[in-house]
C-alpha cells in the first residue's frame, strides 16, 4: 500500500491545471472534487451510464473509467467548456428547444457524446444518432426528443457551415 501522490497536468476547457492525485483517483473525481468541474456526473460504476462523459484529447470517454494519471498531459473538455449561458452551443440550444432534457443529470454527458458524433458525421440519420448515444443512459426523456435535438443541431450547424 502506498499513499504516494503524483503530480499531473490537465488542460481543462483550455485552462492548464496542475494537481496532485493518488494513482487510484479516477478522472471524474479529479475533475469534480479536486478541480471543481461539477458538470460531469457520476451515475454508475460499471462504465454503462455515460453521465461522466468528457472529451479527452477530442474524443468522448467515460471519465469514471480512466485514472487521472492516465490523462496526464491531456486536453479535457467538460460541459462547462461547451458554451456559456449567454452563448450556448447549437447543441445546447437545440436540447432546450426540443425538450431534450428533463432532470438534466445525464445531459452533460449526452451533449459531449452528441458533439463527437456531429464532429465525425455532420448529417447523421436518426438511427445513427440512436446508435451513437447507446452509451448514455437517460431515464427521463425516452430519448426521442434527444434524437430530435441532435438532428436540429446538426441541421443548424451545417447551415452555419454553409454560410461561412
Amino acid at each position: 500500500m502506498t499513499t504516494d501522490t503524483h503530480e499531473i497536468t490537465l488542460t481543462v476547457n483550455g485552462t492548464t491545471r496542475e494537481l496532485r492525485v493518488e494513482p487510484r483517483t479516477l478522472l471524474i473525481h479529479a475533475l469534480r472534487d479536486e478541480l471543481g468541474y461539477t458538470g460531469p456526473k457520476v451515475g454508475c460504476e460499471t462504465t454503462l451510464c455515460g453521465a461522466c462523459t468528457v472529451h479527452v484529447d477530442g474524443k468522448p470517454v467515460k471519465s469514471c473509467t480512466m485514472l487521472a494519471v492516465q490523462a496526464d498531459g491531456a486536453d479535457v473538455t467538460t460541459v462547462e467548456g461547451l458554451g456559456e449561458a449567454d452563448e450556448l452551443h447549437p447543441l445546447q440550444t437545440a436540447f432546450q428547444e426540443e425538450h431534450g432534457l428533463q432532470c438534466g443529470y445525464c445531459t452533460p454527458g449526452m451533449l459531449l457524446t452528441a458533439l463527437s458524433l456531429l464532429e465525425d458525421e455532420p448529417d447523421p440519420t436518426r438511427a445513427e444518432i440512436r446508435e451513437a448515444l447507446e452509451g448514455n443512459l437517460c431515464r427521463c426523456t425516452g430519448y426521442q426528443n434527444i434524437v430530435d435535438a441532435v438532428e436540429t443541431a446538426a441541421a443548424r450547424m451545417n447551415a452555419a457551415e454553409g454560410a461561412d
Partner: peptide, 11 residues
Amino acid sequence: DVGLLTGDAEF
C-alpha cells in the same frame, strides 16, 4: 434548461 445544459446547475 440553461443551468442544466451548461453544468452550472447544482445537484
